[in-house]
Each structure stands twice: as structure tokens, then as C-alpha cells.
């Protein structure tokens, strides 16, 4: 991924910063600049999510693209944040009996890198919240 493409989303990826609409109270992650519910009459502001939520669904990925090959098998999941929105993420540290509904919390991890010599992408993944 070219450097600017990662860099411009850094804040959102590092600290789960999305947006919320002051008018309808709905939260969005990733950030949306227009509220899909209030549309042009919405009032969008930045919002930092607390990083807690629960697993909606998940899969253990055994075959991946080259960028993720070294991580296989890894757990891909959709997590519903306590504030509302669902996000696609990884559940790390090899939970043994993961199931839908498990509570999770955000951790800071490497998302990948632009090859061996390129920049390293960091961001948010999740672990089971015991």
C-alpha cells in the first residue's frame, strides 16, 4: 500500500477514531463524513471508541493472500463495538474456545507491511477480554 494511503487513516486505525452523528446519535467506524441516516441534515463529529465489544461472527483463515500468509491460521472476525458499529478485525493470541458473543478488547498490533523494506502498518486488533 502506498505510504499516503495508510498514513491518512492512521488516527482511525491506531485509536479507533470514527465519527458519530449528533443529530441521530449513531456511531460510525470507519469514519463517515455523511450520516447515512440523516444524510445532509446530519451533524458529524469525531468519536473515539472505547475498544470493547463482542464477537458477532468469525472465521479461521487457512488460505490467505501473500500479505497475510505468514499469519495463517488467523482469526478474522466481525466485532460489535459497545457503542454500536460492527467492524472487521482479527482476534489474536490464539483463543482456544472462541465463540460468538465472546467479549473482546482492543490491542495495538502490526497489521502488515509493504514488503520487507517498506513501511510497517500498525492498527487495532482484538483479544478475548477475560
Amino acid at each position: 500500500m502506498p505510504v499516503p494511503r495508510f498514513w491518512r487513516e492512521q488516527k482511525g486505525r491506531y485509536n479507533l477514531i470514527g465519527t458519530y452523528c449528533k443529530k441521530c446519535g449513531k456511531h460510525f467506524y470507519p469514519a463517515r463524513s455523511i450520516c447515512p441516516f440523516c444524510r445532509r441534515s446530519g451533524e458529524i463529529e469525531d468519536f473515539q471508541f472505547k475498544g470493547k465489544g463482542e464477537i458477532v461472527t468469525y472465521s479461521v483463515i487457512h488460505a490467505s493472500s501473500e500479505d497475510f500468509d505468514h499469519l495463517t491460521p488467523y482469526i478474522l472476525a466481525i466485532v460489535k463495538l459497545d457503542e454500536g458499529p460492527c467492524i472487521t478485525t482479527q482476534i489474536v493470541d490464539e483463543p482456544t474456545d472462541i465463540k460468538i458473543g465472546d467479549r473482546v478488547k482492543a490491542v495495538f498490533r502490526r497489521l502488515g507491511s509493504d514488503g520487507k523494506a517498506g513501511i510497517i502498518y500498525y492498527g487495532t486488533k482484538f483479544v478475548i477480554d477475560n
Binding site: 505468514h70 499469519l71 489474536v92 490491542v107 495495538f108 498490533r109 502490526r110 497489521l111 500498525y122 486488533k125
Partner: peptide
């Protein structure tokens, strides 16, 4: 370290 951990991720977690 986990496969996706390095000095940066450890430093961030400790600092947080």
C-alpha cells in the same frame, strides 16, 4: 512476541 508484535506494539501497550 506474537507474529504481529514488535517494539512499537509493546511500547504502545506499556504506555497505554
Amino acid at each position: 512476541p506474537a507474529l504481529d508484535e514488535d517494539v512499537v506494539t509493546i511500547a504502545v501497550e506499556a504506555s497505554r
